[in-house]
Computed example of a mutant assay.
Amino acid sequence: MPQIQRSNNIRPINLSNDDLSAEKKFKLRVRQVHRRRTSILMLIFGGISLAFGGQLYQAHQIKAQTQTQLVQQQQKLHNARSRSNDLHAQVRQLHDPEYLDNLIRYRFNYSRDGEIIYNIPSEANKNLNF
């Protein structure tokens, strides 16, 4: 069986106060390990916080865009409803014979028997050469 040779590297014991005892070295090592672990945990926590913070910011931006689009669509709906109400009112008026008679006379310059229509030029028609 091969024998293991030990080195005769024995350090002399220094009993002066400048040298740290084994207990102090152990406590220093434990403190360093705890600092390193705390730093690593803080970095991990910071990374996770940044990731979730980014997600929250992105969700807030999407919500703001959606709110803006909702307001725009509500405005379009309001305009469409008012236009629809106007068109329904016009359809009801077109069923009235007196309104229809006045509309045809005004738009198409129709006249009743014995009437003469005079067209008076307006400011917009002054420069037109017919």
Rank of each mutant, 00 (worst) to 15 (best):
S39I: 02
N14P: 03
M42F: 03
S7H: 10
L43D: 14
R29F: 03
R6C: 00
I4Y: 05
N14V: 04
F26G: 04
K24M: 08
A51R: 00
E23P: 00
Q3H: 15
I4T: 13
R11W: 00
V30W: 01
I40R: 13
I4A: 11
L15I: 02
I44D: 02
H34M: 12
G46R: 00
S39C: 06
F26N: 15
S39N: 15
I40G: 02
S21I: 01
L50D: 02
Q5K: 14
S49K: 02
T38K: 14
A22P: 01
N17P: 04
N17Q: 08
P12I: 08
S7M: 06
L20I: 07
A51T: 06
R6S: 03
K27S: 13
G46K: 01
L15F: 02
L15N: 14
I10A: 05
S16A: 11
L41Y: 07
R36M: 11
S21G: 06
V30Y: 10
F45Q: 08
I10R: 12
G47Y: 03
I48T: 15
L20M: 13
F45N: 09
S39L: 06
I13D: 08
R36S: 14
R31V: 05
S16L: 03
R31F: 03
R11F: 01
L43N: 14
N9S: 14
F45A: 14
R35H: 09
I48W: 12
R31I: 05
I4N: 14
L50T: 11
P12F: 11
E23S: 10
L28N: 10
P12Y: 08
N8T: 11
F45K: 10
Q32Y: 06
A51N: 02
N14E: 15
L28K: 09
R6G: 07
A22D: 12
P12T: 09
L28E: 11
S16D: 15
F26R: 15
S7E: 08
F45R: 13
R31W: 00
S39T: 07
K24P: 01
R11P: 02
I40C: 04
N9D: 12
K25A: 02
E23I: 10
L15K: 07
P12D: 13
L50F: 08
D18Q: 10
H34F: 03
R11Q: 09
S7N: 15
N9H: 11
L28I: 12
F45Y: 07
M42W: 03
R35K: 14
L50P: 01
R37S: 08
R29L: 04
N17K: 14
R36H: 10
L28S: 05
R36I: 05
I44K: 08
A51M: 06
R6N: 06
R29H: 04
L43Y: 06
I10L: 10
I44R: 09
